[in-house]
Every structure is written in structure tokens, then in C-alpha cells.
């Protein structure tokens, strides 16, 4: 296979996953959330149980007027949604789906993922400040405090599993994974998942958006396609956090018949975790700002540090 064809296939696969998986998750959220609340959700678009609702939403977003507020910093305002979306595209490239099935295998993929996810904070601050709206700014400052705080337990939990596997490469971590790690690394997995939820600002950690008090936080002034970009970033975020938790803590493609069906196992685990993310959103109310920071600094960080000690101890003993 020539190099360019190989490259083309990889890019096409990543783009397809990048565009399709968030839509699937979004539609699942529509329906699961509706049924958890005793409703049926969208029923008309696409004739069968509203399967085409998000496509219709996309068409609607494209048609909407693209408004930039008069006092806004136009360049920064328009750049922010792209900055929000771009890191996730990079992260999706490095996630291994099956044995050898990865768009870009890197020696230190874990570091890349954590570093690039951190760029999301800049997008939040950019959109918040450039909107020239006090609600946006409040949301952005809350978001920055939350994202900076929760990055610490996220990185520490990921460091624990990297130490256990002895490598920073994502496929390498999956290969080194053993079933008993489910217990050994369980605290780190929980911390990673919760901190990941906070990183993508999903309820119950959606204090920066908090539509009941801040209108829509840093996204208040966005309309049309730019707003759709932010929404897409949120749903790609769900996929990315679910995929990273799968790869790091749930053993990725490991399962019965993993040579042939490895990719299916990964996708199944990602789907199950995405369901849990939606489930948590439906069940729990939004956390107050002080509770949010308290959970991060007084619970997650100590647990992650204790897990590091545990990992070192077990690693040294075996």
C-alpha cells in the first residue's frame, strides 16, 4: 500500500469516527434521557423513533444566522469554537480501537492526550472573554477554575496506570493490561472517569454552563454553526473520555475472541461508558461551585495520590 493511500484511509477513518460516534452518542442521549424521565424523546425526524433528529438539528444550525456581538473581539470570538474542537480531533487519532488498529501510534500517546486535552481551557477562556458578556465571563472563569483543578487528578490517575504498565503508549498500556487490574486500578479508574466528566463539563459538573444562573455560560453569545461546534465538542468529549477510560482502565480490546472482535469490544466498552455518562447526567443535580472544588481537592486528588502509592507498592512487590 502506498504511503498516501494509507494516510488517506487513516484520516478518513478518524474523520468518520469523529463525526459519527458523537452523533450516535447524542442520539442515545436524547432517547435514554427521555425514557429515564418517562418521556419518549424525538419521534418524528427520520420516521422511525426520530433517528435523524441530530441530522435535522445540524441542518437547522447551518441555516441559522451567524451573529457576532457588536462589542465582541471578533477574531477571538470566531476562533474559539475551532480551538475547542481541534484538540479532540487530535486525541481521537491516538486512541487504539483494536490490536494494531490505531490511526497514529505514538511512543508517548498518553502524554499527548493529556497535554492536548488541556488546550480546551484556552477555548473556554477565549469564548468567555471575547463574548463581551458578563455571564459568559463568569462561566469562563468558573470553567477555568474547574478545568485547571480537575486536570490534576486526571493526570495523576493516568500516571498510576502508566506506572503499572511501564509505558506511556496507549496500545502498550492495553497490551500490558491484566484483568486483575480492574481491582488494583479501580480507584484510579474512578478518579479518572469523574475528573474526565468535569473536564468535558458534563452535568453534574456543568457549573461553567449552568443554564439556570448563567444563561448558557461561555456559549451564551454563540449561534448557528459555531454553537454547533461547541455542542459537537461536548459530544466528542464524551466519546473521548469514555474511550480513554476504556483504553486505560477497562482493558481496551481485551475480551473473548479478541483477535477478531477486539474492535467490537472496544466500541462496546466505549458505548457502555457513554451510557453511564448520560445516566449520571440524568440522575444528579448540578454541583455547587464550592462542592465542585471540594470534591476535586479533598477527595479526588488524595485518592489519586494514594493510588499512586498503592501502584508503586504492588509494582515493587511483584
Amino acid at each position: 500500500m502506498p504511503l498516501w493511500l494509507d494516510l488517506l484511509i487513516r484520516v478518513a477513518a478518524v474523520l468518520a469516527g469523529f463525526l459519527v460516534l458523537p452523533l450516535v452518542v447524542g442520539q442515545a442521549e436524547h432517547k435514554v434521557m427521555a425514557h429515564m424521565q418517562g418521556r419518549v424523546g424525538p419521534m418524528y425526524a427520520g420516521a422511525f423513533h426520530g433517528w435523524a433528529q441530530l441530522i435535522a438539528d445540524g441542518v437547522k444550525f447551518v441555516q441559522k444566522e451567524d451573529i457576532t456581538p457588536h462589542d465582541a473581539d471578533r477574531t477571538v470570538f470566531r476562533l474559539a469554537p475551532i480551538v475547542a474542537l481541534f484538540p479532540y480531533l487530535v486525541v481521537v487519532m491516538t486512541i487504539p480501537i483494536g490490536p494494531g488498529l490505531v490511526a497514529q501510534s505514538l511512543d508517548i500517546g498518553l502524554f499527548l492526550v493529556l497535554a492536548v486535552l488541556g488546550i480546551g481551557v484556552v477555548a473556554v477562556l477565549m469564548s468567555a472573554w471575547a463574548s463581551a458578556n458578563k455571564y459568559s465571563l463568569l462561566g469562563g472563569v468558573r470553567g477555568a477554575a474547574q478545568l485547571l483543578g480537575y486536570e490534576l487528578p486526571l493526570v495523576l490517575a493516568a500516571a498510576s496506570v502508566a506506572m503499572a504498565a511501564g509505558t506511556l503508549s496507549l496500545p502498550g498500556i492495553v497490551e500490558a493490561w491484566q484483568p486483575w487490574w480492574l481491582i488494583w486500578q479501580a480507584p484510579a479508574g474512578l478518579v479518572f472517569f469523574i475528573a474526565g466528566l468535569a473536564e468535558i463539563r458534563r452535568p453534574p459538573f456543568d457549573m461553567p454552563i449552568a443554564d439556570s444562573e448563567l444563561v448558557f455560560g461561555y456559549m451564551t453569545e454563540y449561534t448557528g454553526l459555531r454553537f454547533a461546534f461547541f455542542l459537537l465538542a461536548e459530544y466528542v468529549g464524551i466519546v473521548v473520555i469514555a474511550a480513554l477510560t476504556t483504553v486505560l482502565f477497562l482493558g481496551g480490546w481485551h475480551g473473548p475472541m479478541e483477535d477478531q472482535l477486539g474492535w467490537l469490544w472496544t466500541l462496546l466498552k466505549i458505548g457502555a461508558l457513554s451510557f453511564v455518562i448520560i445516566w449520571l447526567r440524568v440522575t444528579f443535580p448540578r454541583m455547587r461551585e464550592d462542592q465542585l472544588q471540594r470534591l476535586c481537592w479533598l477527595v479526588l486528588v488524595p485518592v489519586a495520590l494514594a493510588q499512586l502509592v498503592l501502584t508503586v507498592a504492588v509494582k515493587a512487590l511483584t
Binding site: A34, H35, M36, G38, R39, V40, W279, V282, T283
Partner: peptide, 21 residues
């Protein structure tokens, strides 16, 4: 309490929705 909440939503998910078409 957290687990109870999760159980409630999961139970509702399995029930038929009360929506009238």
C-alpha cells in the same frame, strides 16, 4: 443516596413512557 438515585432513573428507563402521542 447516589446509588438510589441511579436506581430510580434506571428503573424508569425500563418502564413504558407515559407520553400520549
Amino acid at each position: 443516596g447516589l446509588l438510589d438515585g441511579l436506581a430510580v432513573t434506571l428503573k424508569t428507563l425500563t418502564r413504558r413512557a407515559g407520553t400520549q402521542q
